[in-house]
């Protein structure tokens, strides 16, 4: 059913500024409503480019990207207001003048509209998102003073605060401590189900796949080289030097 197609990429290639070779090429991908897709692959294989092409931050050089049936090139902002995005390796330096709550509330700014101020309801949404991730006590702390794992949770709360319809998460668990690495993916899976989200998660942590998702995409050299169930994907990526097993599995 077409209304169930949330993300559709048709023969999409994206080239970075100043580079000749496309970072992703000839991508055809359809993601349906309420699918939870893990995107895996070696470093610099085009995983981040794929996410940023979907939300329109990177314009495709070739092909067409539609989200909710809208062309992302002409309806980028409309689409992005419905997407919760967590970028890779996002760290705020010590001394930067933003509190954790500021950062979470900012996630809603695109939806609030020009000249409007965040309402009490917006603030409540931000508080709830922080509570959900168990970081409500960090609200008034300066972002730069938080640990990498805490900052990552703030960024996840930021993505959740806007009550998105799509989640695009780029390595969202990489800085979490081992305990949170167990809890947070579970929490994301629960929210995904409860809020009827469509979710794409880029990860190196392949052991999450079996437990939490129903579809895996392997990106290699800018192309989708596998698209299927996690059970079938696991043997393909398990021995790959760029994918890392869950911390606990090491010991």
């Amino acid at each position: 059913m077409t209304e169930d197609v949330i993300i559709k990429l048709e023969n999409v290639s994206t080239v970075y500024e100043g580079e000749r070779r496309p970072a992703i090429k000839g991508i055809n991908l359809t993601v349906n409503r309420n699918e939870l897709v893990y995107v895996v692959g070696p470093n610099a294989s085009g995983k981040t480019t794929l996410l940023e092409t979907i939300n329109g931050l990177l314009p495709p050089f070739n092909g067409k990207v539609s989200v909710f049936g809208l062309d992302v090139q002409s309806h980028g902002r409309e689409v992005r207001r419905e997407i919760g995005y967590v970028p890779q390796d996002f760290m705020v330096k010590p001394g930067e003048p933003y509190t954790a709550f500021d950062v979470v509330l900012m996630g809603c700014y695109g939806q609030i509209g020009f000249l409007n101020r965040p309402s009490e309801e917006d603030k409540k949404r931000a508080e709830q998102a922080m509570k959900l991730l168990g970081i409500q006590e960090l609200a008034s702390r300066p972002m730069g003073k938080l640990s990498g794992g805490q900052q990552q949770k703030v960024m996840l709360a930021r993505a959740m605060a806007k009550k998105p319809r799509i989640l695009l998460l780029d390595e969202p668990f990489s800085n979490l401590d081992p305990d949170s690495r167990g809890q947070i993916p579970l929490l994301i899976t629960e929210l995904h189900e409860k809020q009827d989200l469509t979710t794409l998660i880029v990860t190196h942590d392949i052991h999450h796949m079996l437990e939490h998702c129903n579809r895996v995409i392997v990106v290699t050299g800018g192309r989708i080289t596998f698209d299927g169930t996690p059970e079938k994907a696991l043997p393909l990526v398990e021995n790959h030097p760029h994918t890392t097993p869950l911390e606990g599995h090491h010991h």
């Binding site: 931050l57 992005r80 207001r81 995005y85 970028p87 996002f90 809603c108 939806q111 806007k162």
Partner: peptide, 11 residues
């Protein structure tokens, strides 16, 4: 805070 993130939020 971050121009790219502001864009990603639809600003």
């Amino acid at each position: 805070f971050n121009r790219k993130l502001a864009e990603a939020d639809g600003i």
